[in-house]
Simulated assay, not measured.
Amino acid sequence: MTPDSIRGVFIMLDQRILVAYASHTGSTEEAVGTALQEHGARVDVHPVQDVTTLKPYRTVLVGSAIHAAKWLPEAAEFVKRHTTELEQLPLSYFLVCATFREDTAEHHREVLAYLDPVRVLLEPLEIGLFAGRLDASRLPLLERMLVKAMKSGEGDWRDWEAIHDWAGGVWEHLEHGEGEAVA
């Protein structure tokens, strides 16, 4: 190895992973960050609106809760705003959605389609689809009224093991330099 390549390895090892998210509570996003840390990664977990640059990051995972069958607007805007930077980095998307509490082929297709607006901008290397939770007390009044009117049923359907395993898989792909898109 040349001195430059050795320096490049140390720079890569020092770079952090960004988990940028849009959510009302952030608990799933914290789980993704924690799982990456448990695998040895240096991770920053921030709401998308708090991220101004991607320069210190080796890779970016962008996630959002789903409301009205789409990512929260601030998550989609993050991808649009940082498209040029994200094109240069390994990118993963994840979403958290109560619809996915029943992991059927139909729900998989439906929930995966919620990513179409950002997948048109940039295709990720990895996609994580997770069941979420619905706690109407944490929603704005209008959404809370809609949930009650639809009788959607509240609950917590997050599969912490699936979240941990997915994050670990992302880390493994990064460590082994694998870069094919998966859905």
Rank of each mutant, 00 (worst) to 15 (best):
L174Q: 08
E77H: 11
L129T: 04
G8Q: 15
L142S: 04
E154R: 06
L174H: 14
D165T: 07
Q15T: 05
G155F: 13
Y57H: 02
Y21H: 07
M12H: 12
W171P: 12
K151S: 10
I17K: 01
A149V: 12
G168S: 10
G8C: 00
S152T: 08
V48R: 00
G63C: 01
G40R: 03
I66T: 07
K70A: 03
F94I: 06
E38K: 08
D159P: 13
G179R: 04
V111Y: 10
S64C: 11
H82R: 06
S27G: 05
M1I: 07
A105D: 13
C97T: 04
E106S: 04
L129V: 03
E175A: 14
L139H: 09
D116R: 03
A68G: 09
F10C: 01
D103L: 03
L174W: 14
R144C: 06
K151F: 07
L86P: 15
L18E: 01
I17R: 06
G26D: 10
H67A: 05
G153W: 11
E178F: 12
V120I: 00
F130P: 00
I66S: 02
H176C: 11
H173P: 00
D165Q: 07
D50L: 03
T53V: 02
A65C: 15
V182E: 07
E106P: 01
C97L: 01
E102H: 05
L112V: 01
H107R: 09
Q37F: 02
E102C: 08
R42Q: 05
E154D: 04
I66M: 06
A69F: 11
A149E: 03
L54T: 01
V182G: 11
A41D: 10
T53H: 15
I6F: 09
L129W: 08
L95V: 02
H67R: 09
R58E: 05
V170H: 13
L115K: 04
H67F: 06
E38P: 05
E74Q: 07
E143I: 13
D14P: 02
H164G: 11
R7I: 09
L146H: 10
K151P: 05
M12L: 06
E85G: 10
H107C: 05
P56K: 00
E106V: 09
S152L: 13
H24G: 07
S5Q: 08
D4L: 14
E126C: 02
L91P: 09
E172F: 07
I66H: 05
L141T: 12
L86D: 02
